[in-house]
């Protein structure tokens, strides 16, 4: 990656680095994390990478996408660090970087928010459709097919057609947030 991008990335990660600077590498987070087993890099190592300013490595790792926000680490961290928030912030950075690698995660969230913006509330069925289409993975829908059937049988699926128009209130709100966030 080019230096300029690197600098930009480092800037984006700086507030997250501040969150974990006081980490003493005791490993409580990693031993407590229900998803650590699936992570290429334990949470502790992610914090270490952040401390050392290894921004590229953090993003390359991507282990943070496996955080399920259970807050156990946050609760247990002897330094009282906002670790779940740090994970969440990393996800945000990725979302903004639009890194392809995290397509499944980011897209999921983006499509979700699209649904919200449109209706004010989420239409779960609609959003899943949007998500599955956007993933462009022909196998994915099959993965969720059994669930869909079940929901269908319990009359839990909402088959209102996706509305094209937006919810005005939501549009305003989203717009305002965007303005505020991008204000200097």
């Amino acid at each position: 990656m080019k230096d300029a991008e690197n600098v930009q990335l480092a800037e984006a990660l700086a507030p997250i680095r501040d969150m974990v600077k006081a980490c003493i590498q005791c490993g409580t987070c990693s031993a407590s994390c229900p998803n650590a087993f699936a992570m290429a890099d334990t949470p502790r190592r992610l914090w270490r990478m952040l401390q050392a300013g290894e921004v590229q490595m953090v993003l390359k790792s991507g282990s943070f996408t496996l955080c399920s926000a259970c807050y156990t680490c946050t609760l247990r961290c002897p330094r009282g660090l906002p670790l779940t928030d740090a994970m969440s912030a990393l996800k945000q950075v990725v979302a903004h970087q639009d890194a392809l690698r995290f397509a499944s995660t980011t897209l999921f969230y983006r499509k979700f928010m699209e649904s919200v913006r449109r209706h004010g509330r989420v239409r779960e069925t609609e959003f899943m459709c949007l998500y599955l289409t956007a993933m462009k993975n022909p196998l994915l829908p099959f993965q969720f097919a059994p669930l869909g059937l079940k929901l269908f049988s319990r009359k839990k699926l909402d088959f209102r057609p996706p509305s094209k128009g937006g919810d005005a209130r939501m549009d305003a709100l989203f717009q305002k947030v965007h303005e505020l966030e991008n204000a200097p």
């Binding site: 490993g27 990693s30 031993a31 407590s32 650590a36 890099d41 334990t42 190592r45 247990r76």
Partner: peptide, 23 residues
């Protein structure tokens, strides 16, 4: 750093989990 202990019902042992420095 060990955070929690989980008793094993049959053996009466206590199980703990930790992460080595290398993860």
């Amino acid at each position: 750093r060990v955070h929690s202990a989980i008793p094993e019902a049959v053996s009466g042992d206590l199980q703990i989990r930790y992460v080595s420095l290398s993860g």
